[in-house]
Nucleic acid binder design. Sequence first.
DNA 1: CCACGACTTGCGCGACACGCACATAGTGCG
DNA 2: CGCACTATGTGCGTGTCGCGCAAGTCGTGG
Lengths: 199, 199
Amino acid sequence: MDLRERNKQATREAIGHAALRLAIESGPHGLALVRVHDIATAAGVSPRTYNNYFSSRAEAICAFQADQSRRVGQALRSRPADEPLDQAVIAAVIQLYTEPEPDRAGLRMIMLTPELEGEALKAFTMAEGPLADAIAARTGTDPARDLFPAVTAAAVAGAIRVAGRHWLEAGSDASFAAILRSALSCVVPATPPAAARER
Amino acid sequence: MDLRERNKQATREAIGHAALRLAIESGPHGLALVRVHDIATAAGVSPRTYNNYFSSRAEAICAFQADQSRRVGQALRSRPADEPLDQAVIAAVIQLYTEPEPDRAGLRMIMLTPELEGEALKAFTMAEGPLADAIAARTGTDPARDLFPAVTAAAVAGAIRVAGRHWLEAGSDASFAAILRSALSCVVPATPPAAARER
DNA sequence: CCACGACTTGCGCGACACGCACATAGTGCG
DNA sequence: CGCACTATGTGCGTGTCGCGCAAGTCGTGG
């Protein structure tokens, strides 16, 4: 990886981190008060540079979740090939979403702030493409003909979202991993339905 | 319904319709060129009134899809109570999304324009809340304790989205109803899993 | 018929996204 | 090692937008 590319990644993360931190500090309702200037200053760049990287505050704040989502496909591919689909997906997702202990305040900000709803959904939805490809590769289905990979990927992304919301609201009566497991088990079959397998 | 309320609904629809129409006419890439002033004028209101109803162009353009999504819960509730969950959901969704022949150009604009992605996701996701309630009511599960209703609702919303994308891309080798049916059948079980039923 | 409340509209302000031009730092070649 | 080249950071100017505020206008109920 280039020095250039590493610097780029670093400033991207710096801006994203600063944006999320300032948003949290200003409370869930004062998000509109966070000025672009503040984010840029906190990240040590000019306001103009900030929006070379992001074209809205919401995008910057949700950058971490977006990057996280992009890794789901790869996480599934790293599971052993002979593992059943449901177990593989559950294990991959749990590892990815509990490896760095998730930040309650950050997740609460992203998921429960109305102004961020659109960007948050975009962030979680970013998992779908790569995840669908990984599911298709694992199950030997053709994503161009069968809806199963894409639909399952969307369902997984949705289940992760619902699990996060439940983890935030309900309190700590269960670990995030356990909630994820029970959410995912509702929608991921051990093997694709016959209609998709028969091709 | 009041005359006031009917007028309000009418202008809301007028603005949403005008916004979508202008967006389509300007082509998928010229969306940024559609000015708020144009939308307001086309709808016969002042620009200031336009954003009494919507706080962004994207929101106005996606208003129709959002309203549509809000009706999914009610559509499911109107199915006979003894129908299995999967059949009820499939029938409800198909009826709701094919009753007015869906507008290809409009759906294409909403789903395939990057700047609209966030709002489009919001629009489709609006189905989840009422739909989860309806599923919980139908299956007798408690939405506060079981993730099944919320997760299934999210999966259904995702499946509708994927089906729409497939219908737009693939072409007309299948009816929208058929695509919806096969997408939904991937994620909606005939009956809730044992973990949810045993409570 | 009148007073109250809602919806609309015009005005103005602060913020923002982005194009453009220039400065600066990283990179690869001779 | 030095030099051109390209990618990235920055300052400035511009057009648009979201929204608070204060009339004006039209339904609604007494």
